[in-house]
């Protein structure tokens, strides 16, 4: 599992796409944090409200574009190897659960490194570290990576998963926020499917997002066990 995770992790740093996304994430975070003090002054925010203003750029990035960027980089995390038949070398050497876990862990570590680095950038300006916010952000990208792994197992062709992935990445924040605020309608139960429902609250309900991610990974694992390579 760890060797697969290691390869996936380093492989992600090698593509131009990932370098651009890392640069965009860090630049957005840097400039948002840098000009946060100006915004705080203009908006006349209280010290309590201004406490996390420096992370606004990072949160904006992850909430709106997180799924799109995760899908752009990892839409083919599983199906590329099945399609190109390199998966045959892996399934004859280790368990399918180890492959799924390794792939997920590799992509997850990539985003963990990027988000942690971005958080460190905000600390330079805010002189304050909000572990709760970091944990919430981790729960969000955990969900996004698990969704990417699941879609990559369900969709057999990488070109098709790229298309579906981009569509899903664009729709994800719109659907997510819309569903999170649904009330008093017959379809309001949809809000429980959206990670934003749990993230907009300032308590530990965001931990439910991890449960949702685990459920998607279990589904991906069961599907992959039945998949011919």
């Amino acid at each position: 599992m760890y060797s697969i995770a290691k390869r996936e992790f380093f492989q992600l740093f090698k593509s131009i796409k990932s370098i651009l996304i890392i640069a965009l994430l860090l630049l957005t975070t840097y400039y948002a944090a840098k000009f946060a003090d100006v915004i705080i002054a203009i908006a006349e925010l209280s010290s309590e409200e201004a406490k996390d203003a420096h992370t606004a750029g990072l949160l904006f990035f992850m909430l709106l574009f997180g799924q799109l960027f995760v899908m752009a980089l990892s839409h083919d995390v599983m199906n590329r190897e099945i399609y190109e038949r390199t998966m045959r070398f892996l399934v004859t050497r280790t368990s399918r659960t180890s492959i799924i876990a390794g792939k997920f862990l590799g992509v997850w570590l990539f985003w963990f490194s990027c988000v942690t680095a971005a958080f460190l950038v905000t600390i330079v300006f805010s002189k304050h570290f909000n572990l709760f916010l970091l944990a919430q952000t981790i729960s969000l990208f955990t969900f996004q990576v698990a969704l990417a792994v699941l879609l990559s197992v369900i969709i057999p062709k990488p070109a098709f998963s790229m298309f579906i992935g981009v569509m899903a990445g664009i729709a994800f924040p719109f659907f997510g926020f819309w569903a999170a605020f649904l009330q008093d309608s017959w379809y309001s139960a949809l809000r429980f499917l959206s990670p934003y429902t749990y993230l907009i609250r300032d308590d530990y309900t965001f931990l439910v997002v991890f449960i949702g991610s685990a459920a998607m990974l279990l589904a991906a694992n069961e599907l992959f066990k039945r998949r011919e390579c």
């Binding site: 090698k14 190109e84 038949r85 390199t86 045959r88 070398f89 004859t92 050497r93 280790t94 368990s95 180890s98």
Partner: peptide
């Protein structure tokens, strides 16, 4: 089983490898 997989070696019919 996973233990048996460690004791077998397989050369599949299509030797598609990681090009990079």
């Amino acid at each position: 089983s996973d233990q048996v997989k460690k004791r077998i070696g397989v050369m599949p019919d299509y030797s598609t490898l990681y090009s990079s």
